[in-house]
Nucleic acid binder design. Sequence first.
DNA 1: GAGTGGTCTAGACCACTCA
DNA 2: GAGTGGTCTAGACCACTCA
Lengths: 245, 245
Amino acid sequence: MDALGANSTGYVPLYQQIKRLITESLVSGEWAPGEPIPSEFELASRYSVSQGTVRKAISELASQKVLVRHQGKGTFVASHSQESTNFPFLRIAPDDSVVQSVEATLIDLWRIKLDEISAAKLLVSPGASGWLIRRLLSVEGKETLYEEIRLPGDSFETVEEQLVLDHNCMLYSMYESEFGIRILNVEESLKAVTADGEITKRLKLPESTPLLRVDRIAFTYGDKPVELRRGFCNTSNHHYRNRIV
Amino acid sequence: MDALGANSTGYVPLYQQIKRLITESLVSGEWAPGEPIPSEFELASRYSVSQGTVRKAISELASQKVLVRHQGKGTFVASHSQESTNFPFLRIAPDDSVVQSVEATLIDLWRIKLDEISAAKLLVSPGASGWLIRRLLSVEGKETLYEEIRLPGDSFETVEEQLVLDHNCMLYSMYESEFGIRILNVEESLKAVTADGEITKRLKLPESTPLLRVDRIAFTYGDKPVELRRGFCNTSNHHYRNRIV
DNA sequence: GAGTGGTCTAGACCACTCA
DNA sequence: GAGTGGTCTAGACCACTCA
């Protein structure tokens, strides 16, 4: 099986091909985030297949949250700006309640050269230019998470502090509207650590408090990595939740 | 929408009803783990619907890993004993390689009375009898994870030490074959902690080493909780991995 | 009432497995 | 070659939205 779903005889199901064509239109920007795509019957006639085949393609894209279906209204390009939550990949929650408010405050923003490890993870050459964003997240009014975010300069040409502030630190929504980069999924790697003085100070904690370190790689279309993130989380009153099936 | 997928007018799609009938046959044991269920056409005639409708029901059950499909061979009841991995819900991996070998050694096993919190999580009355299993997991030959497992006595009447040893500490496979309880999914809650003396001694670590504490509730059919687990993981050379979409 | 996605059917044919 | 799951079609009808 290759990336298109072809087997050794070169057979690729029609719906896989349709899925690819739809994805191409999304990447090219023919259909913008938040906007409706053509109806299933329109797409069926455009690609000369049956509605059922288009439907199967759309179903898979909807399960990846690339598209969103609304019965009676249409199928829409998924958009961070119209999602229920502003931090769709945030797994930190307070212990005794459900997460209701998350606030981010910007610490600072720098143009940097990406170190070797970061560059390798972002699939760019070591020393390539990039950006470093540092910020603090408060969950339910309590400083809980200190984050360092690294962005590759080739995908993010100019990141102004004002831009980040304008978007109220909703970064993924900013990536989408300002840079045309939609984050589709993320990989996280967690460890328990004791953090250094600066981080504990930011989180207003005594030194050597154990912290949950969350390393993230965020991916856009085609599993292309476009953001690195390292977070240090105070888990005295919060936890990282996960469901595995 | 109720649990069956009915809307306010009482309409329930056929495939949802079929899904329910199939699940009932699975719970009743008509089709045992690892065995094939009847073919799509057979089920279609049994339930007097089309193959497509049966197919849609099976597809959803397959995506929940309740069933497993094999083209050309049939559809099988999922079984832990024939899964690729013996620890299907284990998210701990070594930092610099892929996880290849996991070994579990039993520390001890006790009949206990469930404390209030555990009983509440397992939806049984506080003080109800149960079991406590303590064990150590080695990943790639290195002691990495200390675990305490609590089981409710109503689902697990008698748990013998020999039984656990016979199953080589593959607990979920044991639950399935010995108690007819199949774990379908788990919820985990993670925190960074400094563990007490006994745990660090078990993991051969200096005291006050930060550890990743993983609390798990495991569910069977109908989202019924049937196992509690608390693990303490040494993350110096290992990490907890997660993918979010 | 027109248009959308959601369900369901009957039938055809394909890819894969196994004897 | 028989039997399985996997794909695809054309057409019908349902549930929902919006004017």
